[in-house]
Structures are given as C-alpha cells and as structure tokens.
Simulated scan of single mutants.
Amino acid sequence: MNKLFITGIGTEVGKTVCSAVLTQYFKADYWKPVQSGDLEYTDTHKIESWTENTVCHPETFRFQLAASPHQSAREENTEISLEQFQLPKTANKLIVEGAGGLMVPLSDEIFMIDLIEKLRIPVALVVRNYLGCINHSLLSIMALKQKKLKLEYLILNGAFPPDTERAISNFIKKETVIIRIPEIDQPTKDSIKAVAEQLAKTNL
C-alpha cells in the first residue's frame, strides 16, 4: 500500500478514526482534500493529535459551513473542480480521507467518487453497523465496481451481527481484505496506537 483513499458508506461512520489507525499502522502521511466546517478542530488536527509524527498535508479546500462541500463552496462564492486537486508529493505512504460517502457532491456536476477516479488510487470503505448499513454498503461497492476502482480494504468499524457482516462481505471480491477495527469511544494517541499494533499482528 503506497496510497489509499478512505471513504465511507455515509457520514459519521468513523472515517477519521479509521484513517488515524491506518495512518499509524502504515506510518503514512495524511491528506484531507476538502474540509467543510469545524475549522477550529479539523480532521487534520485530529490526525495530528491521535497519531505519532505524522506529516499532514494542507487541504485543497477549507470551508466555514459544515455542509456538503458543494453547498459550503457556494456559500463562499467558490466552485470546486477536479483540476484543482493534486496528490501531495511525498516519498512516504499516503492516506487520503474523503468527506462523507462516495456520492457527496463537490459541485453540481462532480462527486467524491469522481475525485477518487481522478486520483486513481485504491479505496478503503468504512462500514459501521446501523439499520440500513447493508444497503448503503452494497450500493457503495457497486458504485466502485462501476467506476472500476479497486476496493483494497473493507473496514468493519465496531461490532457487527454475523448476518450483517456476512451479507456485506459476501458481496466483495476475494482480493479485498477485511479489516476489523474495534469500537474506540475516545480516540487518543495511545488507543489508536494500540489498535494499529493489533493490526500489525494480522499482516495486512
């Protein structure tokens, strides 16, 4: 794994916590292309706080309004285009974290999945257990297949009923690796490091 795009089946599924774990595990750099809202404590700030010695590259866009990026951009009389995004230059591995899910609009014409397609890097899909997560997971996997984007990892964040996990995992290709990350109620540098060390035993 040299570069990896972390996306989710929706909002609030734990992408940033999972990004922190993988950033720590791979000793990678981190990049959040678009930050909408929470500028006082961004996802980049969280990664800096929760991981050790991580190089965090600046966001391409930072917006005040906590909303979909296309709405946040419009509030600031800005329009997002794919040409404005360039992968940071680094000799290290790189974790890229998206905003929301695959179909989050960046403008009226482009979506988060279009950014992944432009960057052409493998994907890790974060799944959290809730009523409807099977539908959201399978739709996300279908969208990635349609765009011929490689699903490198399926990340099961937290506990899952066996029936739910089976329905989702049966839908992915054999080469996709399943990562199980336990519930981390209060992320800290120590708790993130502990989970990363547990992952090291699985030889991702």
Results as ranks from 00 to 15, higher is better:
Gly100Pro: 09
Arg128Ile: 07
Thr202Asn: 15
Lys189Arg: 06
His70Cys: 02
Tyr25Arg: 04
Ile178Phe: 13
Asp163Tyr: 10
Leu65Tyr: 13
Arg62Met: 00
Glu175Lys: 13
Gln84His: 05
Thr23Ser: 06
Ser19Thr: 15
Gly101Ile: 03
Phe5Tyr: 15
Thr11Ser: 14
Gly100Ala: 02
Ile95Asn: 09
Asn92Leu: 08
Gly98Phe: 14
Leu125Ile: 09
Lys32Cys: 06
Leu87Cys: 13
Gly98Asn: 07
Pro122Cys: 12
Asn135Thr: 12
Leu82Gln: 00
Gln24Asn: 01
Lys3Gly: 11
Glu197Arg: 07
Ser72Phe: 11
Asn203Ser: 11
Thr60Asp: 00
Tyr130Gln: 00
Gln64Pro: 08
Ser169Asp: 04
Gly100Asp: 03
Glu165Leu: 02
Phe171Cys: 05
Ile116Gly: 03
Leu82Lys: 00
Phe111Thr: 01
Gly8Arg: 08
Asn77Met: 05
Ile113Ala: 06
Ser191Phe: 06
Lys150Thr: 14
Glu183Arg: 00
Ser107Glu: 04
Ser169Gly: 02
Glu183Phe: 12
Asn77Phe: 13
Tyr153Lys: 08
Leu22Asp: 14
Val96Asn: 05
Phe171Tyr: 15
Pro105Asp: 02
Glu48Met: 10
Ile113Phe: 13
Glu165His: 02
Ile9Pro: 12
Met103Trp: 11
Ala143Thr: 07
Phe26Val: 03
Gly101Glu: 05
Glu109Ser: 07
Glu117Ser: 13
Lys89Trp: 13
Met103Cys: 02
Lys89Gln: 15
Ser49Met: 03
Gly37Asp: 08
Pro162Thr: 03
Val123Gly: 10
Lys174Gly: 05
